[in-house]
């Protein structure tokens, strides 16, 4: 901060985190309508797509968008402006990993001075407060946690909490949204059919060149030409997906490169550090991608 006063780090309770600014998101297909429809109909969503193609951003965008007053149709007009925040929909994002247990999500007893005390987990809080619960990379989570979401994702919309012996009914605004990346899904880490079939699935992929160029341009602040070149580079690199690269260059990486370029790093260097070296450690592949970079950028 220029004035020398240290700004306090902003801290929110997980269920109070609201998307305040409109996140940049450029719809490629009808995903926005689908999300709206699913939200109104209480159908959970499964977002599929490679890394860095905008799944998380899309959820943030939708959380913001659904939280706008015009979409809050069920609230009566008497509610005042002070309750604006109430209308907005919090977004609870949980990155799943192998050790994520059921109690990490639901809650657990903790000890304090008087004895034990029940603390709600993020899932319970999201259910109670009517948030959008976003489980990122859900295949990574242990199987017992995926079973947890079953009663939440059918007509019951409840969350049984074994340890406290209670059942929590989901708030009307609650929506479950999970994502996974089919590319590095293996036979072992596939989502079970019984889980899968509780969701509608929206497939994401990297956007077409011109759209991606616009996204890179908007997000990174580099020039339009540079953004176009980056988008074309992205397209070329994705051609290598079957030739040794596990994943193509994500839109996120292209944006990183664009930002570096904006800061005055030369384009070739920016691509090298943001894209080439990030994507692979294999020298031949690196060299090949660098040749593509050096063809596209001066």
């Amino acid at each position: 901060m220029v004035d020398g006063t240290r700004s306090e780090p902003k801290e929110y309770a997980i269920e109070e985190f609201l998307i305040k600014e409109k996140p940049y998101y450029k719809p490629v297909g009808d995903e926005e309508d689908l999300f709206n429809a699913a939200y109104n109909q209480h159908i959970p969503l499964l977002l599929k797509g490679p890394t860095g193609c905008g799944k998380t951003r899309f959820v943030e965008y939708m959380a913001w968008k659904l939280g706008r007053p015009m979409t809050v149709v069920k609230k009566n007009g008497a509610q005042s402006k002070a309750n604006e925040a109430q209308k907005q929909i919090p977004l609870v994002t949980i990155a799943c990993h192998e050790d994520l247990t059921a109690s990490d999500l639901v809650g657990r007893y903790l000890l304090d001075a008087e004895g034990t005390k029940w603390i709600d987990g993020p899932m319970t809080r999201a259910v109670k407060n009517g948030a959008i619960l976003y489980l990122d990379e859900v295949v990574e989570a242990r199987k017992d946690t995926t079973v947890l979401i079953h009663p939440l994702t059918d007509h019951r919309r409840v969350l049984p909490v074994e340890k406290t012996g209670t059942i929590i009914e989901a708030d009307d605004r609650f929506l479950l949204c999970i994502s996974y990346n089919p590319h590095y899904q293996s036979a072992l880490k596939d989502i079970k059919q019984s889980t899968r079939q509780r969701f509608i699935s929206v497939e994401f992929d990297y956007p077409p060149v011109d759209v991606e160029a616009e996204i890179v341009f908007q997000e990174s602040g580099c020039t339009e030409d540079e953004a176009m070149s980056l988008a074309r580079l992205g397209e070329k690199i994705r051609h290598l997906r079957d030739s040794g690269l596990q994943e193509g260059a994500s839109t996120r990486l292209l944006i990183y490169a664009g930002r570096l370029i904006k800061e005055g790093i030369t384009a070739r260097r920016a691509c090298q550090v943001a894209i080439v070296w990030t994507l692979t450690d294999e020298p031949e592949l690196q060299r090949s991608i660098e040749e593509v970079v050096s063809s596209i950028f001066e």
């Binding site: 051609h239 030739s243 031949e284 090949s288 040749e291 593509v292």
Partner: peptide, 15 residues
């Protein structure tokens, strides 16, 4: 050869 192959594959998107 290896590098050129990958380079060409990247450019055209064909194998």
């Amino acid at each position: 050869k290896g590098i050129v192959t990958l380079y060409c594959t990247a450019l055209t998107g064909q194998d």
